[in-house]
Design a protein around this nucleic acid. Structure first.
Lengths: 352, 352
DNA sequence: CTGAAAGCGCTAACAA
DNA sequence: TTGTTAGCGCTTTCAG
């Protein structure tokens, strides 16, 4: 009952009337093999249901695969920290197959830094690359070079419109905005929604949350045609300025029951403000499971968080490349949209 | 940069001035080794940072590990189908390490069938067992025997209070009921909650959702002390009877805005009824991602579903045993409470 | 108590 | 175009 499928390359060779060297050649498309042998071997492989033994294979090939991950740098408790945890999981998996994993971080607000990261990775001659693309053009150039060198790459978090990637793991951004609007409005009589945004540097960086905001706005105009969506820009670095901006927002619109949303991971800024001002009348929804966001959720200053397992995304990316390297198998699906998790104070403690 | 840690058992043997046979003996505590050799070898292993090569090890040991899964049988679209999908994922993983996976199904309403399944598995001499325990006493007897035979086992779905299991993967049941009540009531003015239950056979089977119901009731009495919780029992097999029961429920309580909940995976029964009767005024919450439940969710007859990745639970269980068998490593956490997913019509399509 | 040696299934270099 | 062969690092007899 247990196993039995012990068909080796030798069995195949014998049944096909050739040597195992020849079998190996057709299995890996290396060297010239007569059409006749190839056919026979393929047929036998099929009939016998031959499955190569990975360990034997890995043992025999002394190749040293290395996968490089290119992601934004981060401080403790920030969004990309979770991704790094996923890399750690992936590292463990890949390590079993003798594959090492490296991470090269870049400043997501600095193009030069991104270029430097790409150059460094390229120079190291990686067997595969995982990349979170924040700079469109630069990334396209980079992946083009990877393609030319036959180096497989997978996108995480967001992806670009090229076609050469092995796989993509990320959240459906538009839908996440749509969902967010649904949770925010929650069937109530909503007249106005406040979208709080981060003041961005002007240097034309791609903002990955823009699609999300579109989903949000679409939901509102479809379900609440009379509802106004108002944008307020806050400064992420200057607390005092931020508080002034929010104070003004509350003055301008005296209705205490506000519907507030942020499309990135910094909703804790709002929670902190509300806590300090002692305002408990707002309904606030944000994204991602930063520790500070969870704190706000438990505390009741944020009602819901929409989250994604960016750790799993990274781990899956590594698994995908690993499997590709070892088994020469592309992942079942190229585009993998991971689930959108709705967190509130009652289920957030069981997340992660 | 890439790898490098290429210290083999030969290096250790040479450095310790013994043969690799002796090194192997102390590494695996097999056979007698002089204290002096043992010490020397251990020291060298430490100094050189020797890490055994898994593939070589697995290749050389022709052991045929086999893991047996004992779960309830099911029809298409039922709860346990998802678990089986997870077993499939796990099978792929374990297969890479030459470990085969078997599934033995039992009738969850028939003790004899469960006993037979356990006996069958035991007789087959498994290397590890994964079990979804529906019958408490029988399971305890079974796992006791496993423990005696040093066969590792892990619980999925629910667990018992014994201590010998290698790991557990499942949902926090009490909290899921609590969460469910929160989503059902949703801050509204709720006066009555209808809990629909399945008429159970009287034969003292353990009902795994009882804890969940406790959580539900606790939430209500804590947050809605004046709210009544009313139980209605329906027949899962007899549609006509079921409809009569529900008709009566609607007659007895003429308020059209009802709050209805089911603590198991069969909330589609309610949705079907409401659809047939054209009732759209109720708020309905249920559990688990059966296809029929998703249908009701998209359709609007069920507002929310609380789900768990029982596929991942099963897959994780297999991974845990596999790693234990190969690496002799117990999982990082023994009790693994998986997250509770809140699904509505906007995020359910990205689940699974 | 210990060493030598024969593989495990596969790869890759070398002959033919 | 194909067969032969020497390992990869580890386990497991079998002598001694």
């Amino acid at each position: 009952m247990h196993d039995g499928n012990k068909i080796t390359i030798n069995d195949v060779a014998r049944a096909a009337g050739v040597s195992k060297g020849t079998v190996d050649r057709v299995l890996h498309n290396r060297g010239e093999v007569s059409a006749r042998s190839r056919e026979r071997i393929l047929k036998v492989v099929e009939e016998l249901g031959y499955r190569p033994n990975l360990y034997a294979s890995i043992l025999a090939t002394k190749k040293n695969f290395h996968i490089s991950c290119i992601i934004p740098e981060f401080n403790d408790g920030e969004f990309w920290e979770l991704t790094e945890k996923g890399i750690e999981i992936g590292r463990e998996y890949a390590g079993r197959f003798g594959i090492s994993i490296g991470a090269t971080l870049y400043d997501q607000y600095d193009l030069d830094s991104f270029q430097a990261a790409c150059a460094e990775v390229m120079a190291s001659g990686p067997s595969g690359v995982i990349i979170a693309p924040m700079f469109r053009n630069e990334t396209l150039k980079f992946v083009k070079e990877l393609s030319e060198k036959q180096i497989p790459y997978v996108y995480i978090d967001s992806k670009l419109e090229d076609d050469g990637y092995l796989a993509y793991f990320g959240m459906p951004m538009y839908q996440s905005g749509y969902l967010c609007a649904d949770i925010l409005t929650d069937g109530r009589d909503v007249r106005k929604v406040h979208v709080i945004r981060i003041e961005r540097d002007k240097r034309g960086l791609s903002d990955p949350t823009i699609t999300r905001r579109t989903g949000l706005v679409d939901y509102i105009s479809e379900h609440y045609p009379d509802c106004r969506v108002e944008n307020t820009f806050i400064d992420p670095k200057n607390t005092e300025l931020r508080y002034r901006t929010l104070d003004k927002m509350f003055e301008d619109d005296p209705d205490p029951d506000k519907y507030i949303v942020m499309c990135n991971s910094r909703v804790h800024f709002i929670a902190d403000y509300l806590r300090d001002r002692g305002i408990r009348t707002c309904r606030v929804v944000g994204f991602d499971v930063l520790e500070r966001n969870l704190y706000a959720l438990r505390d009741g200053y944020v009602q819901a968080l929409i989250a994604q397992h960016s750790d799993r995304q990274a781990a899956s990316a590594i698994t995908a490349i690993t499997d590709y390297l070892i088994l020469h198998e592309a992942p079942a699906k190229k585009d993998n949209y991971t689930q959108m998790d709705i967190l509130n104070k009652y289920n957030c403690d069981y997340y992660i």
